[in-house]
């Protein structure tokens, strides 16, 4: 979301102070450069490196040339331009080699990398931003809903982080640097059987809470491939549905479990 800057230093809120310590740049999927601004300068701290290997095979009468291309993200020190394979390595380097550049360090500390549904993101997040806000507004994963508007009561913002379901509205975004995440959009993209079984069993009415239930169910099936009815009820008890679809989740989850056990995707 765009922000206007308050340029009057005498009339500045805490939030604006925090924000204005560096320009917030929206998340960027790896592939385009992530630009960090500090000390009035813009610095690219990511770049994509393409490595091409060419193998030529010669046989009697023929010559075959095979080319393999790999891309990788490099993290670049904004002071000395040294390149690193990971953001952590860059941060460690900065702390040890440029300890006096506190403003840039502060900015770097706000940079996180996520892998969401297999896509990598480099993001700069505010200290108070929740995972829910960042995934929705910066990464565009609108399946994370906000039914209870930030009370941690409903489960509609559930996201799988490193295999565990967590409430996005109760999690600070900066705590999840480097994390691997899954949302309902990703499950649909991978054709996870829960998507089809939820549709088949009409396990939804208005649909607002449905992605949260599906993500929680996915985490359940990852941990317990053959859940009982009681297991399903217990694990989904933290998700609220005002339409009252609860009993319809049981056959949907059970059928998905059967498909997975039979080797289906």
């Amino acid at each position: 979301m765009p922000h206007e800057r308050n340029k009057d230093p005498k009339n500045i809120s805490r939030r604006q102070f925090l924000r204005d310590a560096g320009i917030v740049v929206g998340g960027t999927a790896v592939g385009s450069a992530f630009i960090l601004t500090a000390c009035g300068e813009e610095k690219e701290i990511t770049k994509t490196v393409t490595k091409t290997d060419t193998v030529t095979t010669t046989a009697p009468g023929t010559t075959v040339t095979q080319t393999a291309t790999e891309t990788a993200t490099k993290y670049v020190c904004p002071v000395c331009n040294e390149e690193f394979d990971s953001l952590d390595e860059l941060k460690n380097h900065f702390e040890s080699e440029h300890p006096d550049d506190k403003e840039i360090k502060d900015e770097l500390d706000r940079v996180v990398t996520y892998t969401v549904n297999g896509h990598q993101y480099v993001l700069q997040v505010d200290p108070q931003e929740t995972l829910h806000d960042v995934l929705r507004e910066k990464c565009g994963y609108l399946s994370l809903k906000d039914m209870c508007t930030g009370w941690g009561a409903c489960g509609s913002c559930t996201v799988i982080v490193e295999g565990k379901p967590i409430l996005g509205c109760m999690a600070l975004a900066r705590e999840f640097d480097g994390a691997n995440m899954e949302t309902s959009e990703g499950l649909a993209q991978k054709k996870h059987p829960l998507i089809d079984t939820y549709v088949k069993h009409y396990t939804m009415q208005c649909g607002y809470c449905t992605p949260g239930f599906i993500v929680t169910s996915k985490a359940l099936l990852d941990m317990n491939p053959n859940p009982t009815v009681e297991d399903i009820r217990d694990k989904l008890a933290g998700n609220l549905c005002r339409c009252g679809t609860y009993p319809q989740h049981i056959p949907a989850v059970q059928e998905a479990a059967e498909i997975l056990q039979q080797g289906g995707e």
Partner: peptide
């Protein structure tokens, strides 16, 4: 169904 389940 599909778009509601997928969160889209």
């Amino acid at each position: 169904g599909l778009e509601k389940a997928a969160g889209t």
